[in-house]
Amino acid sequence: MSANIIDGKQLSASIKEQLTAEIAQLKGRGIAVRLATILVGADAGSTVYAQSQAKTSAAIGIDHVLVHIDGSAGQAALETKIQELNSDPTVSGIMISMPLPKRYDAGRAQNLISPMKDVEGTGAANLGAIFQGDFTMAPCTAAAAYKCIHSQPALAVKGAEVVIVGRSTIVGKPLAMMLVQDHATVTVCHTATKDMIAHCRRADILVAAAGKANLITVEYVRPGAVVIDVGINRVNVTDASGAVKAKTVGDVDYDSVSNAASWITPVPGGVGPVTVAMLLNNTVQAAKKLKVKS
């Protein structure tokens, strides 16, 4: 029996629809909703992502500003620009397009962003807030996985056994604490975990966030479990004609696991679209707190 699909595109569209109405209300009160994206250097992938972010923001009414810094400018120039945006009364959210060029300290730069404008939620202050039960500015991908889990009323989190494969600062660790706040019993697995399959097969809810293509196969999944695939990986596959093509896959072997799970997020079309929506949501929440006048 195939698993039910948690449709990230549909969930994302619902979130954006709600945000569009909220933004219109804020603008009606003269409150600016403006996202500034800092792009350092000329990385092609980062540039395309920033342009896409601008288009997505504009579609729901968020003003977007792309702040470009020459790749050779140095850490001090980046930090100066961050401080300028922190002080800019017309900016409600700030994000840094990653990766930064070599010799830049991404962690230091991220932590310089005002916690109230840290819409990616990866600064120390907003990560720490999660431990106090405040998810307002949670990291976008962790928040997206959390949203997917809670999108189906039939999925009970309270008392559930949750296993998260991956302990990153922006997904595994914050998501674990968010679900603990919901009274789940959470286990975090990683590269040093012994007998990972045994841990995973205990899970009522299994979250794959390791960054390794097709890591989680059906052997890892207890029949009827909910599987949330956070991974986004590009792999080469050979089609029926023998041509080699690039394909986007998750950390979960979808074909096998979807026959064992009760609910599953696909890749693409699962957590990814919701991650984008949560960045927009964080920007709106920041605008509400700051009440910056346009």
Score class of each variant (00 low, 15 high):
M1D: 14
S2L: 10
A3V: 14
I6Q: 05
I6L: 11
D7Y: 02
Q10F: 13
L11A: 09
A13Y: 13
S14G: 07
I15Y: 00
E17A: 13
G30R: 00
I31R: 05
L35I: 12
A36P: 00
A36Q: 02
I38K: 03
I38F: 12
A42F: 05
S46V: 14
A50P: 09
S52N: 03
Q53R: 12
A59K: 07
D63V: 13
H64M: 02
V67A: 10
I69F: 11
I69V: 14
I69N: 02
D70Y: 13
A73Y: 13
G74N: 09
Q75L: 10
Q75R: 08
A76Q: 04
A76D: 11
E79C: 15
Q83M: 08
L85A: 04
L85K: 05
N86T: 09
S87N: 14
T90Y: 11
S92T: 14
M95K: 10
M95V: 15
I96N: 12
K102P: 05
Y104T: 05
Q110G: 12
N111W: 13
L112N: 13
L112R: 14
P115N: 10
D118H: 12
G121S: 09
G123N: 15
N126D: 10
G133R: 04
D134K: 06
D134E: 01
F135Q: 00
T136Q: 11
M137W: 00
C140N: 05
T141W: 11
A142P: 10
A143D: 02
K147W: 08
C148F: 06
I149A: 07
H150V: 01
S151I: 10
Q152N: 10
P153I: 09
A154E: 11
A154L: 05
L155F: 05
L155A: 03
A156N: 04
G159Q: 15
E161K: 01
V162S: 04
V163G: 04
G166N: 04
G166K: 06
R167M: 00
I170C: 02
I170D: 09
K173R: 15
K173L: 14
P174R: 03
V180Y: 06
Q181R: 11
T187N: 05
T187Y: 09
T187D: 09
V188S: 00
A192E: 11
T193Y: 05
M196L: 12
I197N: 00
R202C: 07
R202N: 14
A203Q: 04
D204V: 06
A208H: 00
A209P: 11
G211D: 10
K212A: 03
K212M: 08
A213I: 02
E219P: 07
Y220E: 00
V221S: 03
R222P: 13
P223K: 04
A225K: 07
I228T: 02
D229K: 03
V235W: 08
V235G: 05
V237A: 04
A246V: 01
A246I: 00
K247M: 15
D253H: 02
Y254F: 15
D255M: 01
S256M: 06
V257W: 01
V257M: 01
A261Y: 07
S262P: 14
W263F: 08
P268F: 09
G269L: 06
V271F: 06
P273G: 04
Q285F: 10
A286C: 13
K288I: 13
K293N: 02
K293C: 09
K293V: 15
K293P: 04
